[in-house]
């Protein structure tokens, strides 16, 4: 039984280990690292969207905030990178908490608009605080991650660090999702009024999950800053927020592995679409529409359906 319970996470760990053994060139590792960084953000966003049913169109702002805090502390103030990452983590958590207090009282389109506005405001600060952030020209001179005398400058070493952090994040999220909080999140997603009627303060849970998702985004941002060792506001705008939401939707909301699949799929897809040159934007847009229309549960939902048909029992009993 125990083994069964951990089977999926074990397979995930195996995949993480297998990837750099199969794909050893720098290009493949590089795309892999970006995919992992997206997985981290998307998992957080998936908790917010899929489990708590709340949308955020401004999550790139939190990715950016994490990246900039890490960059500034390590490059300008020469902090240890891990200390900087944790500080970023805490600061983003605090910011997200105070932002979440009024924002998560809103619902539906109003929430979408509010989070979008927040993302925009963060973006404007990244580009306007020129003395601190380097402005639109970007921030140069970020060091690589180090541990003792080890410097993680090669893609293979960065991959190892990122993969370990990703694993921890996924493991935490999986537990969070299967404990009481997770069940309440899912209940909120399905019928918030019923949950309120049971005497549960849904608002507290929503704020909590919002903070968690922002903190995940911050970690991904810090990792990104130390991978590329250069950041600019262009990476943390509205477009990025939309990409993140798309990853959740395409992969499958409310299913951690769905989000993971979406992040992987949409990180690799544009690389394959390079053969389409300018037409990739059309493929991307159409894909988004087609997935929502024909696969409302995303890739994960579609696979479940197929599996259910094979088993003839629906296969959805514990949903």
């Amino acid at each position: 039984m125990r083994l069964k319970r951990y089977a999926d996470i074990l397979i995930f760990a195996l995949l993480l280990i297998a990837y750099p053994l199969i794909i050893t060139d720098n290009y493949g590792l590089n795309v892999g690292i970006f995919a992992l960084e997206n997985i981290i953000t998307v998992t957080g966003l998936n908790l917010l969207m899929g489990y708590a049913g709340q949308i955020s169109l401004g999550h790139a702002g939190f990715v950016g905030l994490g990246a900039y805090i890490s960059a500034i502390l390590t490059a300008t103030y020469h902090w240890n990178c891990w200390l900087a990452m944790i500080t970023a983590f805490v600061l983003v958590g605090i910011v997200a908490f105070f932002v979440a207090l009024p924002t998560l009282k809103l619902r539906g389109h109003y929430l979408a608009m509010a989070t979008l506005g927040l993302g925009m405001i963060l973006y404007i600060f990244f580009s306007q605080l020129v003395d601190i952030t380097g402005g639109p020209s970007g921030f140069v001179g970020i060091p690589y991650m180090r541990f003792g005398s080890l410097t993680f400058s090669s893609y293979s070493t960065i991959y190892v660090v990122t993969a370990m952090i990703t694993f921890v994040i996924i493991w935490l999220s999986k537990n969070l999702a299967s404990f009481k909080a997770g069940r309440i999140f899912r209940a909120i997603h399905q019928d918030e009024e019923a949950v309120v009627a049971l005497g549960v303060n849904t608002y507290h849970y929503k704020v909590l999950v919002f903070v968690v998702s922002a903190v995940f985004a911050s970690i991904a941002g810090s990792l990104y800053a130390h991978t590329v060792i250069f950041i600019s506001p262009a990476s943390f705008g509205f477009k990025r927020s939309i990409q993140l939401v798309t990853m959740v939707m395409v992969g499958g909301m409310g299913n951690i592995w769905g989000g993971v699949t979406g992040a992987i799929f949409l990180t690799y897809l544009p690389e394959f679409l390079r053969i389409f040159e300018d037409y990739d934007i059309i493929v991307y847009g159409s894909l988004l529409i087609l997935v929502i229309i024909f696969m409302p549960g995303g890739i994960a939902g579609a696979v479940e359906d197929i599996y259910g048909k094979f088993k003839n029992t629906g296969g959805r009993e514990d949903r």
């Binding site: 319970r5 999926d8 397979i11 195996l14 199969i22 794909i23 699949t261 479940e304 959805r316």
Partner: peptide, 21 residues
Amino acid sequence: MRKNLKILLVLFLLAGLVSTG
């Protein structure tokens, strides 16, 4: 659902192996 996920992951692993191969 868990079983499905396993299958999903196995599928992915296979697809990955096949494609890289």
